[in-house]
Simulated scan of single mutants.
Amino acid sequence: MIAPAITRRSFALAAGAAVAVVAVPALRAQARIEKPRLSLAVGGKAAFYYLPLTISEQLGYFRAEGLEVEISDFSGGARALQALVGGSADIVSGAYEHTINMQAKNQFIEAIVLQGRAPQIAMGVSTKTMSGYTSLADLRGKKIGVTAPGSSTNMVSNLVLSRAGIKANEVSYVGVGTAAGALAALRSGQIDAMSNIDPVMTMLEQKGDVKIISDTRTLKGTQEVFGGLMPAACLYTHVEFVQKYPNTCQALANAIVHGLKWLQTAGPSDIIKTVPDSYLLGDRALYLASFNKVREAICLDGLLPEEGARTALKALASFEPTVKVDKINLARTYTNEFARRAKDKFKA
C-alpha cells in the first residue's frame, strides 16, 4: 500500500511541531529557578543606599521572577557580609568593595547587579562637640560614628582621614547604624563626627547638627573624593553560588533592574507611597529632600563599569595594607552577564 503523499505544508507543520516538542522543555529548563527560596542580608535597609532593593521588594518584583526572598536587616554592611561568610545568608545587598577586600583574604565573592553608582556617603563633624573645627587634623583622637565597623562608611572615613595623614588607629570608630540611633548618637554628643548615608546625613545637615566635610552623594562629589566612578551597593554572593544557580542569579538581577527602571521615572509621591513609613524617620519633607540629593547616585541599568572597579581597588589599596593592586583580579569580583540580560528585558 502506497503511503499518501506528504505535501510541503504538512511537512512544515510536522517539522514545526517536532521542533516545538524539543524546544519547549529546553526553554522551561533554561527558565527554571534552581533555588526559589533565598535568604538575603543587608546592612541598613532603610537607607537610600539600598532603595532599589526596597522598591523591588515592595512592588513584588522578586515574586514576579519566581523568587521568595527573606530579607534580614543588620546594623551595617560588615555584619551582612558576616552572614554570607557564616552561611546564614545566600546573597548580600552590600558595598561592592567587599568583593575586593574578601579576595585579598583569598575568599571569592562576586557582584551580580549594581544598585548604586556613587557611595552616597557623607562625612560631617558635630557642631556641638567640634564647633571650633578647622581641618581634618582636628579629628585625630576623636570618636567617629559609622554604620558598623568595617562597613563602607568606615572605608570612606578611612580614605578621607588618610589623605590628612591620620591612620585608622588614631581615631575611635563607633557603630551607630543608619536610623534613629545614628541621629541620637550625634545629637547627644556620644560621637564627634559621623560617616553615614541618607536620609540620616541630610536630616542632621538641615537641622544644623553637622558640618559636612566630605560628600559622595553626587557624581561630582564622588569624583572629587575618589578621582573617578565608584560603584556602591550591589547584590553579591559566593562565586560558587553564581556557578551553581545561574537562573536564580538572573532572576535576582531582573528584579533589581526592574526596580531601577521604575525609579527612573518615579516622583516623590511614588517613593512615599512605596517605602515603609518607618523609613521616613518622622519627617516626610526631609526624607524627600534626601532623595532628591542622592537620586543621581542610583544606578540606571545594573551594570558595573570597569572604570569604577579600578577606582574602588585604587581607593582600598591607598589605606588598606592587605589589598595589593597587583594581586587582585577585578574580573573575578563582578559579572555584568546577568545585568546585561536584565537591561535588555526591561529596556533600562
Results as ranks from 00 to 15, higher is better:
Asn106Ile: 14
Lys143Asp: 03
Arg217Asp: 06
Gly66Ser: 05
Arg140Leu: 07
Gly60Thr: 08
Ala78Met: 09
Glu57Cys: 07
Ala118Ser: 04
Gly44Trp: 01
Thr127Ser: 11
Ser278Cys: 07
Ser151Ile: 03
Phe291Gln: 00
His238Val: 14
Ala78Ile: 04
Ser10Met: 15
Phe338Lys: 02
Phe226Lys: 04
Glu224Tyr: 14
Ile197Trp: 03
Lys345Met: 15
His238Phe: 15
Met201Leu: 09
Ile328Cys: 04
Ala179Asn: 04
Pro231Asn: 07
Leu303Ser: 01
Thr311Pro: 06
Gly76Asp: 03
Ala17Phe: 15
Asp198Ser: 04
Thr311Val: 11
Leu303Asn: 03
Pro231Gln: 00
Lys45Gly: 00
Arg117Lys: 15
Leu38Tyr: 02
Pro246Cys: 12
Asp344Arg: 15
Lys293Val: 06
Gly302Arg: 02
Asp73Trp: 06
Gly60Leu: 11
Pro276His: 02
Phe319Leu: 10
Leu159Asp: 03
Thr178Glu: 08
Thr274Asp: 10
Ser135Pro: 10
Gly189Asn: 13
Ser126Arg: 02
Gly259Glu: 07
Tyr236Pro: 03
Thr216Ala: 05
Ser318Asn: 06
Gly282Tyr: 09
Ile121Trp: 05
Glu68Val: 13
Asp209Cys: 09
Asn169Lys: 14
Met194Leu: 14
Ala164Phe: 09
Ala185Cys: 05
Thr153Trp: 03
Lys167Leu: 09
Asn158Leu: 10
Ala184His: 14
Ser172His: 12
Ala14Cys: 15
Arg310Ala: 11
Met201Gln: 00
Tyr50Leu: 07
Thr335Lys: 12
Ile144Lys: 01
Gly302Thr: 09
Ser88Gly: 13
Glu57Ile: 14
Val225Pro: 00
Ala232Ser: 07
Glu296Ile: 07
Ala148Ile: 09
Glu57Phe: 12
Ser93Asn: 08
Asp301Arg: 09
Arg340Asp: 09
Tyr50Gln: 01
Ser152Gly: 12
Val92Ile: 11
Pro199Trp: 02
Asn106Arg: 14
Pro305Asn: 07
Val242Asn: 01
Lys142Arg: 14
Leu204Gly: 02
Lys293Ser: 04
Leu288Gln: 06
Gln115Tyr: 03
Leu252Gly: 05
Val257Met: 05
Val125Gln: 01
Glu110His: 09
Ala339Leu: 12
Phe338Asp: 02
Val21Ile: 15
Arg284Thr: 09
Ser195His: 02
Ser188Arg: 13
Ala233Asn: 01
Ser162Trp: 03
Pro36Asp: 06
Arg163Glu: 10
Lys143Ala: 11
Glu205Ile: 13
Ile272Met: 13
Leu280Lys: 00
Cys249His: 04
Gly308Cys: 07
Cys249Met: 12
Tyr287His: 07
Gly302Cys: 04
Ser39Gln: 12
Gln250Glu: 11
Arg28Ser: 14
Val146Thr: 01
Leu330Phe: 06
Ser195Glu: 04
Leu53His: 07
Ala122Asp: 06
Ser278Arg: 13
Asp209Val: 10
Glu205Asn: 12
Asp192Ala: 09
Gly208Ile: 08
Gly177Leu: 04
Arg79Leu: 14
Arg9Pro: 02
Ala179Trp: 01
Asp277Arg: 14
Leu27Tyr: 13
Leu40Lys: 06
Ser290His: 08
Glu240Ser: 15
Ala89Asn: 04
Gly77Leu: 03
Ser157Lys: 05
Met1Phe: 15
Arg163Thr: 12
